[in-house]
């Protein structure tokens, strides 16, 4: 009997997330970002979460549901991100005051190391050495090793309980296809997580409707699919407003 992976609502798709879960959020600057699942998690209310993502969000307008809102909602114990501050020092992320006051922990990870730690978790590799961050504050007191004359830093895999990702197309078997820059961290998080929940832009297709050669993430990695309803009920990527300099 076919496994049913298609759910009717975002609330149903994330209802079982317990307090203390580790959740990865896909996306890079909009594309691939699971706004609808994040909004549902705000409403669901699970606490003491560890949130893994490129950034905690909130640096741009219009603001969309993000990890910063989960922090503001008292749901987050720790974040693992490549940005815990904005690139522009004058921008203050909504997350930042909570971090400064010690109410949330943060682990700052270079972006390529974050990607590779997720990939390693999904690939059954517990740790690896990378040249990134050697000689910086991030490497202080940590294990390094010289291999072929170059110093490398030991990094550990980053497994997750759940991954929230957004895809362009999906079929009933859970196979995913992304469009353009949507892909980013999404395939890596799908591999790293025990339970993968996907918000899907197009109508979910019958199994077999996506050419197997065009599948970016195998349905093996995907447990739950929810079609994004039309706006305003469903949240869609919007153009960032240009900021005055």
């Amino acid at each position: 009997m076919a496994r049913n992976k298609i759910l009717d609502s975002f609330a149903a798709a994330i209802a079982d997330i317990p307090d203390g879960a580790t959740v990865a959020f896909g996306g890079f600057a909009g594309p691939g970002t699971p706004y609808n699942l994040t909004k549902a998690l705000l409403e669901q209310g699970a606490k003491r979460l560890t949130c893994i993502a490129n950034t905690t969000g909130g640096a741009h307008q219009p603001r969309m549901p993000d990890i910063g809102m989960l922090v503001e909602n008292g749901q987050v114990a720790k974040v693992v991100c490549s940005f815990t501050a904005a690139t522009r020092p004058t921008d203050v992320l909504p997350f930042t005051p909570y971090y400064e006051r010690g109410e949330v922990e943060a682990e700052l990870v270079p972006q390529g190391t974050l990607a590779e730690r997720l990939r390693a978790a999904g690939a059954g590799i517990p740790a690896f050495y990378t040249p990134t961050a050697v000689g910086t504050e991030l490497a202080e007191g940590r294990e390094t090793r010289v291999i072929n004359g170059r110093e490398y830093l030991l990094e550990y895999a980053l497994p997750c309980d759940y991954a929230f990702i957004r895809a362009w197309r999906a079929d009933a078997a859970g196979n995913l296809q992304f469009r353009l820059a949507q892909r980013n961290f999404c395939p890596l998080m799908a591999m790293a997580a025990k339970t993968v929940v996907v918000e899907v832009e197009e109508d979910i297709l019958p199994a077999g409707a996506i050419d197997p050669d065009q599948v970016h993430v195998s349905g093996i990695f995907v447990q739950r699919l929810v079609k994004i309803p039309p706006a305003p009920e469903g949240l869609w990527t919007v153009r960032r407003q240009e900021r005055a300099r």
Binding site: P89, E100, Q111, P131, A133, E137
Partner: peptide
């Protein structure tokens, strides 16, 4: 990636790129 007064930082891909 980090200003003196800040507890956090914004590394993004800068360290990977700078090293490699």
């Amino acid at each position: 990636w980090k200003v003196g007064s800040a507890k956090g930082g914004g590394i993004g891909g800068a360290m990977d790129l700078a090293a490699c």
